[in-house]
Design a protein around this nucleic acid. Sequence first.
DNA 1: CTCCTGACCTGAGTGC
DNA 2: TGCACTCAGGTCAGGA
Length: 274
Amino acid sequence: MPELPEVETVRTALEPVVTGQQIRSVRLTRGDLRWPLPERLDEILTGQIFGMPWRRGKYILLPLSGQQTLLIHLGMSGAIRIYDNCPDSFGKHDHFSVELANNNWFVFSDPRRFGHLDLLQSGNEAAHPLLAAMGVEPLSNAFSRTYLDEVLAGRKQPIKTALLDQRLIAGLGNIYVSEALFKAGISPRRQAGNVVGKRAQRLAPAIRNVLNAAIEQGGTSLRDHVQPGGEIGYFVQSLQVYGRGGEPCNSCSAPIKVIRQGGRSGFYCPNCQH
DNA sequence: CTCCTGACCTGAGTGC
DNA sequence: TGCACTCAGGTCAGGA
């Protein structure tokens, strides 16, 4: 489910709820999600106080008073919901729930269990195996035409596949890659190393604009994504190509094409994107 | 290194 | 209704 804008939406919603709050109790229903969870995670967390949540790529990081940081990845189907009181009941896939001293709860549910929870030493985030190789944040100043030129040079894979590689750019997923390539007028099938000149010039701003617009709208709700308060994300109304196979391009009316790359569906306008 | 495939899971939708 | 099959917002491990 969640790409950078959805994760950022979750982080933003968590911030005022958890920051400075002590953990009163933790409800953990299983010892593993994608991987085994830290031993005694519930006991370790109980009593600690949350700092301000931040984000790296598609990961949410929640600093704790005890010098550790809780790392959360939502996988494909993960969602976090915030409640102002103890939920009446817990769903089958509500694997991890936290009760705060202000009586609020947040509940992490993840039907497919591709998500993950881990603990790391605060300050050593960059050394964590899941974060160590991660590329630049596309909304940071380090992300530029120059950076893209550097990491794309010589790559033979399709540009779409390269943009999905978290080691190059952190946080892009299937929706926003398709949307950004449409905005930049670049075919997803073009070799990454052949994205040069005007195309290269358009790509970084296109990525940035698409992400910022999606964050503003609370992300894209297709199936699973809801904001922690229960609101859906409205960027779904702004999608130009993703999920619109066969429908007319909003710009030229040609039918949107569906392709398969790296085992994943992609969408593009064969007339507007080259 | 780079690139590609399969694997991990559940649930929703489709077609017979 | 039921069953078989496909697909889904991610990404890691393993092999060529």
